[in-house]
Design a protein around this nucleic acid. Sequence first.
DNA 1: TCGAGTGATACGCTATAGCGTAAAAAGTGA
DNA 2: TCACTTTTTACGCTATAGCGTATCACTCGA
Lengths: 81, 81
Amino acid sequence: MDLTARTAEQIGEALRRTRKTRGWTQSDISARTNLRVATISSLENGDAGTKLATVLAVMAALGLEFRLVERGGSLEIEDIF
Amino acid sequence: MDLTARTAEQIGEALRRTRKTRGWTQSDISARTNLRVATISSLENGDAGTKLATVLAVMAALGLEFRLVERGGSLEIEDIF
DNA sequence: TCGAGTGATACGCTATAGCGTAAAAAGTGA
DNA sequence: TCACTTTTTACGCTATAGCGTATCACTCGA
């Protein structure tokens, strides 16, 4: 399960997959974030117009955080030690 | 240089640090993204209202991508092999 | 000393996010 | 098939992002 994302579509897909993994519904996320189900839906469907605050709220609800890495950066040996 | 972020402030800081590392100005990013310097400034200063599209454009200009990871997930041994 | 580069901030404008509310559409299990 | 859950979409509304343009503070080298 690779959760690398460069686009809103990829972020949305990653969030949806993580949510499913947790066995949660959009309604569950809605309850934890005070965002509407419609907003969660929009985000998961890759709306790039979504506010950063919204993305971060859903991330927090899912227990996720961002890591900013070099593009195409498949685990370099220098990154380990 | 840890680029982990849970908040808009942390994302802004990570983007600014990366930009400085590249030796670029906000104007350089502006030219590469067609976003105004004011918008870049706002993002780097942690405005959570920033649109996802804006964040992604700056990320792309910096050659960065997101990785969505478990919170507090400090490099686990299973992640390496 | 001072002009150039950098970054922060402001004003008026248009486009749109997210809201409440609602309903339709799609998925799921008996 | 049918009822229930989940997700998507719509409408009217308010708040605000990002735009063009411009100004202002700060830093720094000539």
